[in-house]
Nucleic acid binder design. Structure first.
Lengths: 147, 147
DNA sequence: ATCATTGCAAATTGTTTGCAGAATG
DNA sequence: CATTCTGCAAACAATTTGCAATGAT
C-alpha cells in the first residue's frame, strides 16, 4: 500500500479525527483502485472486505480523508462524477474517449505551457491538479472521423 | 434573438419534433441568458413568462433542443453542473476563480496548440468545444498566493 | 384525427443528515 | 469515560418517467 509511507494516523489525529477500521478500509480501497475511483468503485471494494460498512460511512470517510490530505478528489466527466486517488501519487490528466469509453492518462507536463500562457495573458492561475479532456482516441477517431 | 437566424422550425421538424410554445420559451431563455445557463437559471427565466411550465418540461425541451443542435450543453464544475448555450455562438472556454467565484471567458485559440500536441503525441482528438479550468484570478491570487 | 407533448405526481439516483448505540483515545 | 464514529433510516436535491389530458400538424 503506497499510503503506508504516509503517516495516516498522524494525519487523522492532527485534526482531531480518530483512526477507525472503516476509514482504513476506505483508504486501502482508494489505494488499490489506483486512481480515478468513483464512490461506487470504492464501495464495491470496501464491501468485499466488510459488507456491513454503509455507503454514508464511505462518503464521510472520503470527506475526512480528503480534508486531512490523504486522498485527493477531482471531477471526471458528468456521468462519472467525482473520483478519488491517494494523495502524492503522480499527477496526471485524463483523456476520455467518448466512443469507446476508455480513459487514457497523460502527464501534467504537456499542459504546463498553456497554463503558463494563461497566467501571462489573463493573470489567471490555473490549478492544474487534474483535468479530464473529452474526445476520441486514435482507434475510434479512425472509425468515425470528425466525431 | 440570435437564434432567429437559425431555422428552429426546420430543426425540430427534421427529427419529427413539434414546435411548441414551451420549447420556444425555453429556447428564448437560453438565448437571453447568453451562455453558461444552468437549468435553474433557465427555469427562472422561463417562469417569468409562463409560471405553469414545469421543470420536467424544461428538462425535456433542453434535451430535444440539444439533440437537434439548436443549443449546446457542457459541463461547468461539479457545483454548477451542466450549462446550456445557443449553438453557433462563439466558442470559448471558462476560467473559474475558486476564491471569488467569478467566471472569465477565454478564446479557444489559446488551447489549440496543446490539443494539437496531444493529437500528435497520443493520437487523441480532443473535443475543444468547451472547457472549464479552475484556479485563481489575478486579484484573488494576489490576496492568497499559493492557493 | 392522429400522435407528440404537457403538467402533474411519483419514481429514481446520488448524497447528506439525525440519532441511538458502539468504539476510540 | 467523554467524544467521536457507525449503521440505519429518513431527508434531500436533481433528474427522469408514467399517464391522462391537451395541443400541434
Amino acid at each position: 500500500m503506497s499510503h503506508e509511507s504516509k503517516d495516516y494516523i498522524a494525519a487523522l489525529h492532527s485534526r482531531g479525527y480518530r483512526v477507525t477500521p472503516q476509514r482504513l478500509i476506505v483508504l486501502d480501497a482508494v489505494c488499490e483502485l489506483q486512481g480515478h475511483a468513483t464512490v461506487s468503485d470504492i464501495q464495491n471494494k470496501v464491501n468485499l472486505l466488510d459488507s456491513t460498512i454503509d455507503r454514508s460511512t464511505i462518503y464521510r470517510a472520503l470527506d475526512i480523508l480528503t480534508e486531512v490530505g490523504l486522498v485527493v478528489a477531482s471531477e471526471m466527466d458528468a456521468e462519472t462524477g467525482r473520483v478519488y486517488r491517494i494523495a502524492g501519487e503522480a499527477h496526471h490528466h485524463h483523456l476520455l474517449c467518448q466512443a469507446c469509453g476508455e480513459v487514457f492518462s497523460i502527464s501534467t507536463d504537456i499542459l504546463f505551457p498553456v497554463f503558463q500562457q494563461i497566467r501571462d495573458t489573463y493573470g489567471f492561475e490555473v490549478w492544474a491538479d487534474h483535468l479530464a479532456l473529452k474526445g476520441l482516441c486514435e482507434r475510434c477517431a479512425r472509425k468515425q472521423p470528425g466525431g
